[in-house]
């Protein structure tokens, strides 16, 4: 039983991280219609920027606050000068453009911070260890498990109870109609992409105390969040939550039972969902 509990915690802590990444990806897709390949690179950028801020101020919390905000500036520039031009283009161009941005960001970060491994400490407040099921368990992981639903809840309220949130939802359903009723759609697009960037970078900053920083750290998470977004339903907020949990738990329990098959599990799941319910488990909408 203990063992089961630990595995659930392990799966949840990864799943919640995945959720933060996937919810940004799915919101951007829902509104802008672009599946952003560079989303994982924004995750990576968030981690590096958090580390950089920590080197100046020696505070993880400041890093968590300022790092993602710096990434947002880059995100806004990307949207305003690059993405904007491909909204009406074929999906292959959209993917290739964001893939090019991925290449630039990954290699650019390597040029700035080098290819060596960097390590970020968790904040003192969360650096402790608890005993769960007779085994040590890091408090930071529990923090990750909590922060996911908290941010998710804030986002959900934002989309449902604020004017801007409702406008974004309207734009995601029908941008022509939204434009017709006087909503500044280009501005909405920029804001949504900024929000997506912020979520990705926040995820990166949150992941930094757990995993070593390397320019390629976004690669694993971007493919997994693609899978989450597709199985959850492209553009679906609850879908991203359920999908991320599913993938996180499958990951942790897969290490126990799946053996050689483990590597293929996410892809089997992806193909199965696409074949049975091509639009994902949940309907589009936040």
């Amino acid at each position: 039983m203990d063992f089961l509990l630990l595995n659930i915690l392990n799966g949840l802590s990864w799943g919640m991280l995945l959720f933060l990444i996937a919810v940004g990806l799915t919101t951007v897709f829902g509104v802008l219609g672009v599946l952003n390949f560079a989303h994982g690179s924004l995750f990576m950028l968030g981690a590096y920027l958090c580390m950089q801020v920590m080197q100046y101020f020696d505070s993880f919390w400041l890093g968590l606050l300022l790092g993602p905000l710096c990434a947002v500036i880059i995100g806004v520039l990307v949207e305003k000068y690059l993405l904007k031009r491909v909204y009406n283009r074929d999906v292959s161009f959209q993917l290739l453009l964001t893939f090019a941005i991925l290449l630039i960001l990954d290699d650019g970060v390597r040029m700035i911070w080098g290819s060596g491994y960097h390590v970020v400490d968790p904040p003192e407040l969360l650096a402790g260890i608890m005993t769960i099921a007779g085994q040590d368990y890091p408090v930071y992981r529990l923090f990750l498990i909590v922060i996911g639903p908290v941010i998710g809840g804030i986002l959900w309220s934002f989309f449902h109870f604020t004017k801007w949130g409702k406008i974004i939802r309207a734009a995601s359903f029908d941008n022509i109609m939204a434009e017709g009723v006087g909503i500044n759609v280009p501005l909405i697009y920029t804001l949504v992409f900024a929000l997506g960037t912020w979520l990705a970078a926040l995820g990166g900053a949150l992941a930094a105390p757990q995993q070593s920083l390397v320019p390629s750290m976004g690669e694993k998470i971007i493919i997994e969040s693609f899978i989450v977004v597709v199985i959850g339903g492209m553009g679906s907020f609850p879908g991203a939550f359920v999908g991320a949990l599913l993938l996180g738990l499958l990951g942790s329990f897969g290490t126990m039972f799946a053996g050689q098959l483990q590597m293929a599990i996410p892809y089997l799941l992806l193909a199965a969902v696409l074949l049975i319910k091509p639009n994902g488990l949940f309907k589009k909408g936040v």
Binding site: L82, R85, V86, F93, L96, L97, F99, A100, I101, L102, L103, I104, D107, G108, M111
Partner: peptide
């Protein structure tokens, strides 16, 4: 990095 830099204008 430069492949990315080249791809951007090609796509646009």
């Amino acid at each position: 990095f430069f492949l990315g830099i080249i791809l951007v204008p090609v796509v646009l």
